[in-house]
Amino acid sequence: MPSASASAIPFGRRLPEGLLILLGLFLIALGRGAFSARPTGFTLAPKPVDAVRVVTWNVGGAERGGKWRSMDDHSLETVKAVLLELNPDLVLLQEIGDRDQLEVLIDALGETWVLSSRLRSSGRRLAILARGGELDRFLLGGAAQSALAVHWTSQDRKISVLNLHADAFSASTRNEELGQSVDGLLRVLNGEGAIGLLGGDFNLDLDLDKRGDLFSDDQQLDVESYNYATSQFEDLGLGRGNTAAPDRRIDYLLLHAGQYTLGAGGPLKGRRSGQMDHDPLVVDLHLP
């Protein structure tokens, strides 16, 4: 029969460290909140009455082996359905297959919608679709190949809009395209109250959480490109989640405006179809 010397350690003697362990676990659970605030994207809701809802969406797809292809007819149905659900006012699309697809979308959205598009050398189209008003295209200069720029005039409000699909492979090309887009758009924004919107697929991912090779030339160029653009424009999608597979934020909506209020926004998740690899990025803007 073992004596008291050999008996198990009584619970009371474990109490101090037990309390410490419980306190530690409690604080860890409390601090868990720092991570739970990850953006979940845009939640579909009726558009506020006085808001302008803007959408940018690369509707093309990515195939295995790294080949890109423009929107197919199956995806067209998806895009049409999503746009109808979203009820947007301004839509920037990249990687449209052909003009017929745009006609289908315009027909679906309604008679008041207007459209401007351009064919890129890759055979894919950029398009800007707007609810009512007029679209007046203007030329940019160097970035002409990859961007489409229009003045959208509607209800006494003029917004200069630039839809950019920047190069996916070369950081220096992206740097040039984005820089020229920013400069080109700024050139046409004359006077107080002028509103400029620069959106599209910029193909640069600077997520704070992702640690790439920070000191590669590409990374540095992308950082500089982004910093240059955001020195003049507000990044409306910042902190609102990733827009493209796999887990990248490469679609942007940048705004240059004297006064505005940013409402709900973010990528609308779960609406891709086929080989689409981007979510539509949606923001609600309250403009003067």
């Binding site: 309390l19 410490l20 362990i21 530690g24 604080l27 860890i28 868990r32």
Partner: peptide
Amino acid sequence: HQSAASLAGWSILFSGL
């Protein structure tokens, strides 16, 4: 504050163990 709580929690947990 949340990150501080988490770090304090881990520190206290490790210390307790």
